[in-house]
Simulated assay, not measured.
Amino acid sequence: MPNIRNIQLPDFPLLLAPMEDVSDPPFRAVCKANGADLMYTEFISSEGLIRAAAKSRQKLDVFDYERPIGIQLFGSDVETMGECAAISTEAGPDLIDINYGCPVKQVAMRGAGAALLRDIPKMVAMTAAVVKNTPLPVTVKTRLGWDNDTLNVEEVAERLQDVGIEALTVHGRTRVQLYKGEADWRLIAKIKENPRIKIPIFGNGDIDSPEKALEYKTRYGVDGVMIGRAAIGYPWIFREVKHYVTTGQKLAPPTLEERIAMCRMHFDKSLEWKGPKAGIFEMRRHYAHYFRGLEGAKQWRTRLVDAENGEQVYAILEEIAASDAVLVG
């Protein structure tokens, strides 16, 4: 089993990717309910934590029902990242994860995220500082390299293992690719095949169906897969992958009743964590995903987005349940 120190994981664990403005506790709750084995917070700015910025501090919230859960950090300063590892440890996660993969301009141009792929010595020093400042397991998420001329993830894997990381997740794209094109898992497989590598290697990128998860497991030999965008509004992807990998059979897609129930659970958790105003506002981005393929989905989504309080949202969900709308996709 690809355990991470004392964190017990199944034979082929499914990880929920840390996604900015998505992977908050309400979203993690519905993914956990559907079989996610290991989850991470949204990535947290080390500079924001040092400044005690409210948004960064709130992202430290973790709950027992989420375990095992990792707090993911990003930053450009070695010393600051070490300090933030200690701060994050106090929040009580099961591990600390370092983001060396975020490709967005606002992060990379400040020397954080995927930018560290252009400065491997600094990446190694930063990782060592994080390991030194927490008793928890430290893991890393990164990419193949900055661009096709700097595909250095094999070197990265060895050097980061040498300074103490206990698992590595690799997204099969370069920073320059952003999220375009098809993810290339061949280098991920080479890391896994490297006899020097003893830590679990997880693959990320384009896992959007049970068939692809099993195909990539077989073809590339990874210890597990990380699922991101495919879980938005469809947390059932985790249970479907688990069932397919185990049995070779596809589960039936969720019924309308299941979609409504899961949307309501997500909404309840959002109100509980964010409060009525922010909780209602932040759920608005999820409705289109939950009801994708439903006849009349656009009008239902519009009404849900326009709802001003929880009572209105619950009433609209009841209307959807009572309607004769059917799922067509």
Results as ranks from 00 to 15, higher is better:
297 A>S: 11
226 M>G: 09
21 D>Y: 01
74 F>Q: 02
151 L>G: 11
204 N>S: 11
166 E>R: 06
297 A>E: 13
251 L>Y: 01
54 A>M: 05
233 G>Q: 09
289 H>G: 06
127 T>Y: 05
116 L>G: 10
32 K>T: 12
69 I>W: 08
19 M>I: 14
199 I>Q: 05
280 I>G: 10
329 G>C: 12
281 F>S: 14
11 D>W: 01
207 I>K: 03
226 M>L: 13
122 K>M: 14
320 I>Q: 09
137 P>Q: 05
26 P>K: 13
171 H>T: 00
3 N>K: 13
173 R>G: 01
229 R>P: 13
110 R>N: 14
207 I>E: 09
265 M>F: 09
92 G>I: 03
111 G>D: 03
150 T>H: 10
126 M>V: 11
173 R>I: 00
204 N>A: 06
233 G>V: 07
138 V>T: 00
227 I>T: 09
77 D>L: 03
199 I>F: 12
98 I>W: 05
245 V>I: 09
255 T>F: 02
198 K>F: 00
327 L>E: 14
237 I>D: 11
110 R>V: 05
310 G>A: 15
326 V>G: 10
36 A>K: 01
281 F>N: 07
328 V>E: 13
177 Q>A: 11
214 L>Y: 02
130 V>F: 00
129 A>I: 12
193 E>G: 10
144 L>S: 13
66 E>F: 03
60 L>G: 01
101 G>H: 01
64 D>P: 08
329 G>V: 06
217 K>Y: 12
302 T>A: 14
252 A>Q: 07
76 S>M: 07
164 G>H: 11
18 P>T: 08
280 I>S: 15
56 S>V: 09
64 D>S: 13
16 L>H: 08
302 T>W: 04
201 I>G: 10
206 D>P: 13
186 R>N: 15
203 G>N: 02
37 D>R: 00
318 E>L: 04
191 I>K: 02
123 M>E: 07
252 A>R: 02
200 P>T: 09
217 K>H: 12
46 S>I: 06
48 G>P: 10
162 D>M: 14
271 L>V: 03
18 P>G: 02
290 Y>A: 03
49 L>H: 06
328 V>R: 12
46 S>H: 00
311 E>V: 15
153 V>G: 08
150 T>L: 04
184 D>G: 07
25 P>S: 06
222 V>P: 03
200 P>Q: 05
301 R>D: 08
